[in-house]
Design a binder for these strands. Structure first.
Length: 106
DNA sequence: TTGATGACAGACG
DNA sequence: CCGTCTGCCATCA
């Protein structure tokens, strides 16, 4: 057996950590990719978060994730804004208000 | 193996 | 507000 860790395993571990953080996001909370990456223990790896969301089969609250500018997910803006509004999050002009993100919620 | 790509972020102009 | 460039790193042609 290889004593060196396979890249696939490292990737899987990061993926699990990120999924874990995603599952910890509660209703009404809105978090950025960078925040999720940092919470998972991988600061500055926000792109990885996007990839996980785009490829995973797990049921994670993807609609509670926005980019640093508060922009909604490209191609899912309509559904995402509907889901967020249903949780009481203010969405205006295809983006979430700054004051609504973070673990604090308002 | 290299180069391009991406549900990103931050700095610049 | 927008576009461009760099950093980050797995994935794909």
């Amino acid at each position: 057996m290889g004593s060196r860790t396979d890249p696939a395993d490292l990737s899987a571990e990061r993926t699990q950590r990120i999924l874990d953080v995603l599952r910890s996001i509660g209703p009404g909370e809105v978090v950025t990719y960078g925040e999720i990456a940092a919470d998972a223990g991988y600061p500055r790896q926000s792109r990885f978060v996007g990839r996980v969301l785009a490829t995973t089969d797990e049921e994670v609250p993807w609609w509670r994730v926005v980019n640093a500018a508060g922009r909604l997910v490209p191609g899912h803006e309509r559904e995402q804004s509907a889901l967020l509004r249903a949780e009481g999050v203010a969405v205006e002009g295809g983006r979430v208000r700054r004051a609504t993100y973070g673990r604090f919620r308002g």
